[in-house]
């Protein structure tokens, strides 16, 4: 699918955002560089770029560095420098630091975002990329020429910032490695989640709550080795009263996850789509304080805050339903199809 379709689907969602942030994530967009980490970086100026590139070059071999192609349109203004790099970790660095390569990538991203003034790595996965800006999503999509990319999975978001400023780094999706998160809602547990996850080397620097969900996903999936279903049972944990009614084995499992990860329970309204290498997981908060619908059309699955977004591009979509709060909807691309 090219990015055209998802831009189209965002049109009826125009009024859900206010022009202060729009973004997309596409998976499978860099087949020719699929073995390299694709870093997308905003720079305020060239000195930040020089500093970041120096650091990148120390730990990674850069096979390609370029401006991310954009289309000049009047709707998008105050544009920072937008670069992308395809890079592979240097073996010598990995062995010296005794790290696996994903951990090295995470540390690099955290270092740049927290230590280099005016540089933000906003995408760091393989064969995927995040594209975001201050603007309405349909304009952001045209700005980044997403019609020229083909992906097996697209996510998109229009922002209506409430607690924090609208700025380029604050637009969704938030991503780390191949995980990306778009989020409709506001997290009341944010500081509890942030202060917990920062114990494990993550640094929340992007001044908005959703960022922490991306790091929680990375921590639970990659570092703790939980399954997607288990992650859903941590961040949208069932109520104790619900757990008590489950059959004993399931109750034990759910109660274990709540006891081990109490600080990663996410409260407040959210519908999120977590993209990952090979699929996505859609999830609502446990009270279902935000809308989310799922639909199918042929071999495609759609998830949106409103059915209108789906109907805009698939008028004949079927099996439309609204998942329960806390019920994960996990979609994986068929084996080998990406």
């Amino acid at each position: 699918m090219t990015g055209e379709k998802i831009i189209e689907s965002m049109l009826p969602m125009h009024d859900r955002s206010n022009g202060l942030g729009g973004g997309f994530a596409g998976y499978g967009i860099y087949p020719e560089y699929k073995d390299f980490y694709a870093f997308h970086v905003f720079y305020n100026d060239n000195s930040a770029r020089a500093e970041c590139e120096k650091l990148l070059g120390e730990s990674f071999e850069i096979v390609k560095a370029e401006n991310i192609p954009t289309r000049k349109i009047p709707e998008i203004t105050d544009i920072p420098l937008i670069w992308r790099y395809f890079a592979a970790p240097r073996d010598s660095v990995l062995s010296r630091l005794q790290l696996d390569e994903k951990e090295l990538v995470v540390r690099f991203v955290m270092h740049v975002n927290s230590k280099i003034d005016g540089a933000y790595v906003f995408s760091s996965g393989k064969n995927m990329g995040t594209f975001k800006a201050v603007g309405f999503p349909e304009d952001v999509g045209r700005f980044y020429r997403l019609d020229e990319y083909e992906a097996y999975l697209w996510t998109a978001h229009g922002r209506y910032p409430t607690n924090t400023p609208g700025w380029w780094g604050g637009a969704h999706p938030f991503s780390l490695l191949d995980f990306s998160v778009v989020h409709n809602g506001e997290i009341s547990s944010y500081d509890a989640n942030r202060r917990h996850i920062e114990m494990f080397g993550y640094k929340c620097t992007l001044r908005t709550d959703t960022e922490v969900i991306a790091y929680i996903a990375d921590y639970l999936l990659r570092r703790c080795g939980l399954t997607l279903e288990e992650v859903a049972s941590v961040i949208a944990a069932p109520f104790w009263s619900t757990i008590e009614k489950k059959e004993p084995k399931e109750a034990e499992r759910l109660s274990y996850l709540r006891k081990v990860f109490p600080s990663l329970l996410v409260t407040g309204p959210f519908s999120i789509v977590l993209g990952f290498d090979g699929g996505m997981m859609a999830l609502n908060d446990r009270l279902k304080l935000r809308p989310m619908v799922v639909a199918e059309a042929g071999d495609r699955v759609y998830v949106a805050s409103e059915e209108a977004a789906i109907r805009a591009v698939e008028p004949d979509a079927e099996n439309v339903y609204a998942p329960m709060g806390g019920e994960p909807v996990i979609v994986r691309v068929k084996e080998g199809a990406y």
Partner: peptide, 16 residues
């Protein structure tokens, strides 16, 4: 009032 429905989401939540 804070939009929190579990005490663990309040623990250490100093932004509140």
């Amino acid at each position: 009032g804070m939009g929190i429905n579990s005490i663990e989401a309040l623990r250490g939540n100093r932004l509140m």
